[in-house]
């Protein structure tokens, strides 16, 4: 019973802490978004222009954001909580649940902001054509690095607003977070070259995930193309479990540095 309550507290704490960061993240993104819409209008006069919608934009930047906070929390929060008498095991479960909560909330908030901005644009009759993300147009013959970058920042290419896409959004945010967590934990524990190996591992997992979602991957990678979103979600969820398993292995006996 007691253990349960510590994990619940941790989940709430991690949700709140990261939630505060996320509010800042969304605020900044919103300001940049509005500037992106208005600046060319003021400067170049009115001609109809296509702009990706806020939901789609949150989708891409949200992933990178989650990767970053995954790294930050794994380096700073675990030692902080162990210093406060929390076990590594409780932190692991608490952080997992708390972050899952965050990954569920972000798409919903992004959706609300999207509808608000869309409403505003329609209401003020601005010459803006809001679009979801178009398919990644990387050609098969793209060089390896380009494909890699594409794989990292642009995993799934289905971004139309639907119940399924909200689920995909959540799963991906959480996926990027656990990857960041894994990199941070690997670096914290092993440092140097061994820590670097976790980045290599992360890139490999990104590539596999990207392949699962039907993005072009180097031909030598035998990844099944599960373009059907539902199966692809299962693929990403499986990867999340594998990464969580790695994180637990890395952190279960981890020395807290003084």
């Amino acid at each position: 019973m007691k253990k349960k309550s510590i994990r619940t507290k941790l989940a709430i704490d991690l949700f709140t802490l990261q939630g505060k960061w996320t509010v800042w993240f969304l605020k900044i993104m919103f300001v940049v978004y509005i500037a992106h819409i208005l600046y060319p209008l003021i400067h170049n006069g009115e001609s109809v222009r296509a702009v990706d919608d806020f939901y789609a934009r949150s989708y891409i930047f949200g992933n990178i954001y989650m990767l970053v906070i995954g790294i930050i929390t794994s380096i700073s929060c675990l030692p902080y909580y162990v210093q406060n008498g929390i076990t590594r095991r409780d932190y692991f479960f608490g952080a997992t649940i708390g972050t899952l909560g965050l990954a569920i909330i972000i798409p919903l908030v992004a959706l609300i902001i999207h509808f608000l901005t869309k409403g505003m644009i329609d209401w003020t009759n601005l010459p803006i054509d809001l679009k979801g993300l178009t398919e990644a147009s990387a050609a098969e013959e793209d060089p390896f690095i380009a494909q890699m970058i594409l794989a990292v920042i642009y995993a799934p290419s289905v971004v139309e607003i639907s119940g399924l896409s909200i689920l995909v959004f959540t799963v991906n945010l959480f996926f990027y977070y656990v990857i960041g967590w894994m990199i941070g934990a690997g670096f914290y524990r092993f440092g140097g070259i061994k820590g670097m190996m976790f980045i290599v591992l992360a890139l490999a997992i990104f590539l596999i995930n990207s392949g699962i979602w039907g993005n072009p991957v180097p031909a030598w990678l035998p990844i099944p193309d599960l373009t059907l979103s539902f199966y692809a979600i299962i693929g990403t969820v499986s990867l999340i479990f594998i990464v969580l398993g790695i994180i637990r292995l890395v952190t279960r006996n981890m020395r807290i540095k003084l």
């Binding site: 007691k2 162990v82 008498g85 929390i86 076990t87 006996n253 020395r255 807290i256 003084l258």
Partner: peptide, 28 residues
């Protein structure tokens, strides 16, 4: 419990403290 011993044992209140939620919250 910031670290684990290479060999030997530690017991606090009869229990091994490492990753022991009851003991760890009692050690500052």
């Amino acid at each position: 419990s910031f670290n684990q011993p290479t060999a030997g044992t530690i017991k606090i209140d009869g229990e091994v403290p490492f990753e022991n939620a009851r003991i760890m919250q009692e050690v500052a």
